[in-house]
Computed example of a mutant assay.
Amino acid sequence: MTSTNVARPRWRTLALAIPGAIVAVAVLIVLARWLRELPAVADFVMTHPGHVALPESAPVGIPAWLAWQHFFNAFFIVLIVRSGWSVRTTQRPAAHWTRNNSGLIRTKRPPKRISLDLWFHQTLDVLWIVNGAIFIVMLFTTGHWMRIVPTSWEVFPNALSAGLQYASLDWPLENGWVNYNSLQVLTYFVTVFVAAPLAIISGLRMSAAWPASTARLNRLYPIELARAVHFPVMLYFVLFLIAHITLVFATGALRNLNHMYAARDGASWLGFWIFAASVVVMVVAWVAARPLILRPLAQLMGTVSR
């Protein structure tokens, strides 16, 4: 069976899932709007408007380094998802890569031969991890961690309130330049401090860098567990991106894009044009991620064979 034939049932399943998802969203909106009319729920939303005040020492605004980090993170995640999907669905890779057992990296074991798609995926993983490490260091040295790490238990009822407001299409008040709402705080916290580490740990277990000769370690952390974690985490990132982009445009596109890409507050078009340029870069990279382009890059670090 060819890879095309394997892919067809997946696309059919996706095509059938889309109408079901639309119906589910419509039901959720109707239910949320009905709940908002109940006196007890209305009082709950009034008491918990959807956000918690930050500590007085919390920084205000989005620095330029965070705007750059946002672009690189989005760039790497998009290509990681693309290359990961290719690894998962390609039956006969166009080329394979073998690391040169020389230079800075030398092992007693013969280098493992992997597909070119997997090489690309793992290379992107390393770049994404480096970018994430820089982000974490900057986050905690500048105090911006207070914007995405809960500092009060009140974040939980306020997150529930914000979710209800989103579901009813009566958006919670937005002022991301100063403070994210509680649902955003919890989502960003889970993405940065839970989903990202799970992706790294499970990806490392599945990579050629994992020490295969350590039988005890392999029993403690079997590869089947890593596979069971890695793919759902990828789906989480895809759903996060869809929800994130949708809400960015639905809750004040120009101001949100200025925060995220231009590191400034206001409703000018600067952030939009920077965002548009970043999308062009990602589309070009997506299209260019083919064996013709990847092969000479991979040959810089190893041997590529058909």
Rank of each mutant, 00 (worst) to 15 (best):
T141M: 07
N179S: 13
H121G: 08
R216D: 03
A253H: 01
R92I: 06
T141N: 03
F189Y: 13
W286Y: 14
A64M: 11
R106Y: 02
W97N: 00
V6T: 07
V130W: 13
V27T: 09
V78K: 03
R147H: 13
H96W: 13
I274E: 09
L127M: 10
S161H: 05
N5R: 15
Q184E: 06
S278F: 02
S202E: 09
A42H: 13
H51T: 07
W68N: 01
M301P: 00
I105P: 01
N175D: 15
F44Q: 02
A289M: 09
P111K: 03
L28N: 11
I242Q: 03
T2A: 08
V155T: 10
A215M: 10
Q184S: 09
A196T: 14
P19Y: 11
N5G: 08
F71C: 01
I29G: 01
D125A: 12
R12P: 00
G266C: 08
I134Q: 03
L186H: 05
F272Y: 09
L160T: 11
R10Y: 12
V137G: 12
G271N: 07
A243D: 03
M146L: 15
I62G: 00
V279I: 15
L127P: 01
T142K: 11
A199N: 11
Y261K: 02
Y221E: 00
P59M: 09
R109D: 04
V126A: 08
P172N: 05
F237P: 01
R33K: 15
L54D: 10
L257A: 03
F231L: 12
P55E: 14
F249E: 00
L66M: 13
L241R: 00
M138G: 12
L31T: 11
I22S: 06
